[in-house]
């Protein structure tokens, strides 16, 4: 016993180091295998508020450009609206009948240089933002909500090695998965497109209909380069993003009102199948 105590006292620094290292590695590896850590994320109260304050100040410098962007988007949406044949009246926009409801948010922290990038936005549980909602900008897809606190939420960016989003080639139904190889922040990869699909450089990639998170046909990017993978049966496609991931301010949060129902049905089918 004496010896054990002596041993502990003698190596207390080393033991402390090993213990803290275990704790850190525990948190790190746990979130590698599953999700971003529940505790170590910037959507909590303290960090959220500090980042929000900093953002309040710095956002003034980009107001002109942001306004310009929003005007351009409004112009595009107006064009769509005025050229639509049947009129949309306000009852059709009653949220009871809609599959998707949209809310807006602002980015307060953005990162794109790490292998796992997360974006923090200023909407949280109080604005009924929940994990697994989709986030887009006016130009294209951005990511999926991962954690929420009362007033903030973190978004798993598409520039994240864990990101895996259903995508397809526009105007076809050939779909694959959108992943990221951690190399460049303006290029993501589309994999699992069979080799018999005709491709051209410059084709547009949009979100597919297989996901219960994003609506179909949200723009992602254009094909920049493609080649066959090692098994020679699927394409690896480099997709140049429409979004400038380094410069994002206003985002839209998409909620699929039928997601719960879809998931339940899929779960039921799965259990029946076994």
């Amino acid at each position: 016993m004496q010896q054990i105590i002596n041993f502990i006292i003698r190596y207390k620094n080393f033991l402390l180091y090993v213990f803290l290292m275990m704790v850190s590695l525990g948190f790190t590896i746990q979130s590698h295998s599953y999700h971003q850590s529940r505790f170590f994320n910037s959507s909590n109260w303290l960090t959220g508020n500090i980042l929000d304050t900093s953002n309040d100040v710095s956002s003034y410098f980009g107001l002109d450009k942001e306004n310009e962007k929003l005007m351009q988007e409004n112009e595009y949406l107006r064009k769509l609206l005025f050229n639509k044949e049947e009129r949309i009246d306000s009852t059709a926009l009653d949220s009871v009948f809609l599959t998707y409801t949209i809310s807006t948010g602002k980015v307060i922290k953005n990162s794109f240089a790490d292998p796992r990038n997360y974006i923090t936005i200023d909407k949280g549980r109080n604005d009924s933002v929940e994990p697994d909602m989709g986030v887009i900008t006016s130009k294209g897809i951005l990511g999926i909500i991962e954690n929420t606190s009362n007033n903030f939420a973190t978004v798993q960016s598409i520039l994240n090695e864990k990101s895996n989003i259903n995508a397809k080639i526009k105007n076809t139904d050939h779909f694959g998965s959108l992943v990221w190889d951690m190399k460049r922040f303006n290029v993501v990869q589309l994999v699992d497109i069979p080799r018999l699909v005709p491709l051209t450089i410059g084709d547009t990639i949009v979100t597919g209909g297989m996901s219960s998170i994003f609506p179909e046909n949200i723009p992602i990017g254009t094909i920049r380069k493609f080649d066959l993978n090692t098994s020679k049966s699927f394409y690896n496609i480099d997709v140049a993003l429409f979004n400038d991931m380094t410069n994002i301010k206003n985002v839209y949060i998409i909620k699929n009102n039928y997601r719960k129902e879809i998931l339940e049905l899929e779960k039921q089918t799965e259990t029946n199948g076994q």
Binding site: V23, L25, T28, Q36, F40, N41, S42, K109, R116, T154
Partner: peptide, 12 residues
Amino acid sequence: DFFSDTMAIHAA
């Protein structure tokens, strides 16, 4: 780590 969403890598 809290601010940069990097799990506990900075701590390690």
